[in-house]
Computed example of a mutant assay.
Amino acid sequence: MSRYPFEFFNDIGREQSADRVRFVLRAVIEPMAAKRHCASLRNISRDHCMLRKAVPSDLLALKAVRSSVVENILSDPTKVTDDDYDLYVANPGVAVWEENGEVVGFSAADPRNGNIWALFVVPGFERNGIGSILLAEACACLKSAGIGRAWLTTDRNTRAERFYRAAGWEHVGEKDNELLFERSL
């Protein structure tokens, strides 16, 4: 059994996998353990939780997670199309978190431009470290693509804004009426 309660993508080489594990440990697990913010993460059994790469059959689950959130709600759901999801799933940037076989969170990173396109966790599963793990995985995806600085946008005065600030993201301006954050990888 692994020392840590999640699995990493199986379709990457051993050296790349080891680099990803070290990055996630350094960026997420060690700071969380030091701050004791995520005691529940240590209690998650590998038997019922998994971090994995999204597959095309996850499309409905990704859309369900996206539509379940209570903040950062899409004002116009037609702005995010099935083609958008398909593009990200077909490329290496979408990670999903499963609990008991159900997708309860996902992140999507765009290795073409360094954008973290999505990070969502189903209400009721928040504040358990899942978002931090998914964010670290998105950053690892970008870093492995040669991106040195990631960026994302979010609504102001939300838990997401506080989450990104606490994770060390820097507010650098605005884009499309949302806060623009950046962070070196």
Rank of each mutant, 00 (worst) to 15 (best):
Arg3Asp: 14
Arg3Lys: 11
Asn10Lys: 13
Asp11Ser: 09
Ile12Gln: 14
Gln16Leu: 12
Val24Pro: 04
Val24Gly: 11
Val28Arg: 10
Ala33Val: 02
Lys35Leu: 10
Ser40Cys: 09
Leu41Trp: 12
Leu41Ser: 01
Asn43Lys: 13
Leu51Ala: 07
Leu51His: 01
Asp58Gln: 06
Leu62Glu: 09
Lys63Asp: 12
Arg66Ile: 00
Ser67Cys: 07
Ser68Leu: 09
Ser68Ile: 11
Ser68Arg: 03
Val69Tyr: 01
Val70Tyr: 12
Asn72Gly: 04
Leu74Phe: 05
Pro77Gln: 08
Tyr85Met: 12
Tyr85His: 09
Ala90Trp: 00
Asn91Cys: 02
Val94Trp: 06
Ala95Arg: 05
Val96Lys: 06
Glu99Asp: 10
Asn100Ile: 02
Val103Pro: 10
Phe106Asn: 01
Ser107Tyr: 03
Ala108Cys: 13
Asp110Val: 06
Gly114Ile: 06
Asn115Thr: 13
Asn115Trp: 09
Leu119Phe: 01
Leu119Val: 15
Phe120Thr: 03
Val122Asp: 00
Pro123Glu: 08
Gly124His: 10
Arg127Phe: 05
Asn128Ser: 07
Asn128Pro: 00
Gly129Arg: 02
Ile130Ala: 12
Gly131Lys: 03
Ile133Leu: 15
Leu134Phe: 04
Leu134Arg: 06
Glu137Arg: 12
Cys139Tyr: 00
Cys139Lys: 10
Ala140Thr: 02
Ala140Gly: 05
Cys141Ser: 14
Cys141Asp: 07
Ser144Gln: 12
Gly146Ser: 05
Gly146Ala: 05
Trp151Tyr: 14
Trp151Val: 09
Thr154Pro: 02
Asn157Lys: 11
Ala160Asp: 05
Glu161Tyr: 03
Arg162Thr: 14
Tyr164Lys: 07
Tyr164Val: 02
Arg165His: 01
Ala166Ile: 03
Ala167Gln: 13
Trp169Met: 06
Glu170Cys: 07
Glu170Thr: 14
His171Gly: 00
His171Ala: 05
Val172Arg: 11
Val172Ser: 09
Lys175Met: 05
Asn177Leu: 08
Glu178Lys: 04
Phe181Val: 02
Phe181Lys: 04
Ser184Ile: 12
Leu185Glu: 04
